[in-house]
């Protein structure tokens, strides 16, 4: 039996996904959580094979939960389940160190298939796309503008994250404390966060209106 833990703050989603999973002969739901705090405690207690994590949680991010699990309980495989679009979901999964992501589509998301693969230890992230997503960020002409905001340190961290390293491993390789790495990851997350994007646009507006002035003259 593949033991699955479900983390999502929407009950209707949890119910739907649980129905779907329980209908499979080789899968069972061993627990559910609606918040990041609940998830951390309960997952550590039940040690599922696969944790299905939503990115947006009322008290934090599924990405943070996933990275914590990487350190604390490496046997738990994480799968990001998100309403994001593919590009954002891929970034989220890479940063989280998850084995893959599944979009909140009803058909064609291959949720069941994905859970089986991940439980067997496979990574669903195409290595080519993983590299593309991370390497040379900001050097591509059409790179995601959000990523241009990252500092070089953050990019360095992101590159190591892309290699699937945990916070502790990144800390060792960069000679930094694990806590520092955790801060970098939080900063990365907030920079790539959907909610922050409108503010980034607003900042851009300010820059535009400033350039109209001849302040230096």
């Amino acid at each position: 039996m593949i033991r699955v833990f479900l983390v999502d703050d929407h009950e209707i989603v949890r119910r739907g996904v649980a129905d779907l999973i329980e209908a499979q002969p080789d899968m069972e739901i061993v627990g559910e959580a609606a918040t990041a705090a609940e998830a951390r405690g309960r997952i550590a207690a039940v040690l599922p094979d696969v944790a299905l994590l939503d990115v947006h949680l009322p008290d934090g991010s599924g990405i943070d939960v996933c990275r914590d699990l990487m350190n604390a309980t490496p046997s738990v495989h994480c799968l990001i389940l998100t309403a994001y679009d593919d590009d954002q979901a891929l970034y989220a999964a890479i940063i989280a160190g998850a084995s893959g992501y599944v979009l909140k589509d009803i058909r064609g998301n291959g949720l069941i298939e994905s859970i089986r693969l991940v439980a067997g230890g496979a990574s669903l992230i195409d290595p080519a796309l993983r590299r593309k997503a991370v390497v040379g960020l900001g050097t591509h002409k059409h790179a995601d503008p959000r990523l241009a905001q990252l500092s070089s340190r953050e990019r360095e961290v992101l590159a190591l994250i892309a290699d699937g390293l945990s916070n502790r491993e990144i800390g060792l390789s960069m000679s930094l404390a694990e806590k520092t790495i955790k801060n970098y990851v939080s900063s990365l997350l907030s920079k790539l966060d959907l909610q922050r994007r409108t503010q980034a646009v607003a900042i851009q507006l300010d820059v535009d209106s400033d350039s109209r002035r001849l302040a230096e003259r």
Binding site: D8, H10, E11, I12, V13, R15, G16, V17, D19, L20, H56, A83, Y84, K104, D105, I106, L194, Q195, R197, T198, Q199
Partner: peptide, 23 residues
């Protein structure tokens, strides 16, 4: 931004949940 968040945080989730139930 708020509309986008609402769409993301509520509308998609509801549709997704409902769809799964139908399924």
């Amino acid at each position: 931004g708020r509309i986008a968040r609402d769409l993301h945080d509520h509308v998609i989730q509801q549709l997704f949940g409902t769809g799964l139930e139908l399924q």
